[in-house]
């Protein structure tokens, strides 16, 4: 199967013990390390879910005290929590929609056309991702203050669309690059005009990539704290709520919201990965 089979025929001077040790490491250690890494990645998520079922002893929801379902039943109990979730949902939906439209157009241009300035455009797309978020947020604050744009939901939305565009373009470009260009040529040969070829051939084939880009943009926008922190004014998104609450003790309902969002996005991602796996197997 893997390299271990190829290793059976080997010069005699090769130490058998070392060989066996190396084979053991190759076969098992990497799996053990990998499994530990997965545990490390998932442990905090398990804690988030666990603490959503906690009845905290004091103001701080840090240690597990007693099991309760009250937090789930009374999700909107803490003042302003559900309003903040609603605002975050609105911003994330709008940001994902706008970034997806802008991003798909750009990704299409960058993969299907050869033109002067394409390399520059590719670099421009990557630039926002090479800046620390704190700098993006701070620089936007200086722009808003100078241009007299009031801080708040609109300022947040403009910023979120900006950083989501790059991610959408990268995801969609990867998908478009995988497409067989002969399909498009076939459409053109059959007298489809460019728009019709785009709508009837490219768009359906690129749909999984576009969907993935949109989901990614939604998740990034919903979860953004650092940039929002500089542009929110008095607007309270969900991450801003958590940040404020962290100083006086986060109510367990925050963990309920985080768990719910995690489950929704996760089931979307698992569905997509199953579809990918099934398709890959079928293609084989």
């Amino acid at each position: 199967m893997d390299a271990s089979n190829a290793r059976t025929a080997r010069p005699l001077h090769y130490s058998a013990a070392r060989e066996r040790a190396a084979a053991f490491f190759g076969r098992h250690a990497i799996r053990v390390i990998g499994a530990l890494a997965v545990v490390y990645l998932l442990l905090p998520i398990a804690v988030v879910v666990l603490m959503s079922l906690n009845d905290p002893a004091g103001r701080y929801n840090f240690t597990f005290n007693a099991f309760t379902l009250d937090n789930w039943a009374n999700m909107c109990g803490p003042y302003g929590l559900c309003e903040s979730v609603l605002l975050s949902l609105q911003i994330a939906l709008a940001a994902a929609a706008a970034a997806t439209v802008i991003g798909v157009l750009a990704a299409y241009a960058l993969t299907r056309f050869d033109f002067a300035g394409r390399a520059t455009a590719n670099v421009l797309v990557l630039l926002p991702m090479t800046m620390p978020e704190v700098v993006l947020g701070a620089s936007l604050l200086t722009l808003y203050v100078n241009a007299g744009i009031p801080l708040g939901p609109v300022a947040i939305l403009l910023a979120h669309i900006m950083f989501c565009i790059s991610f959408v373009i990268i995801v969609v470009k990867a998908r478009l690059a995988m497409l067989d260009s002969r399909l498009l040529e076939a459409a053109t040969d059959l007298y489809a005009n460019p728009w019709r070829a785009f709508r009837r051939v490219t768009l359906p084939l690129a749909a999984p990539g576009i969907l993935a880009g949109a989901v990614l943009a939604f998740a990034l926008s919903f979860d953004d704290f650092i940039i929002t922190n500089f542009n929110s004014g008095s607007a309270m998104t969900f991450p801003m709520y958590v940040w404020g609450a962290a100083k006086r003790g986060v109510p367990p309902q925050v963990n309920v919201v985080a768990t719910l969002i995690f489950l929704v996005v996760m089931s979307l991602a698992v569905t997509m990965s199953i579809v990918t796996t099934v398709r890959a197997r079928r293609a084989r």
Partner: peptide
């Protein structure tokens, strides 16, 4: 998966 659980909460 961790990216889907809120940055601040995790």
């Amino acid at each position: 998966a961790p990216l889907f659980a809120s940055f601040l909460v995790r």
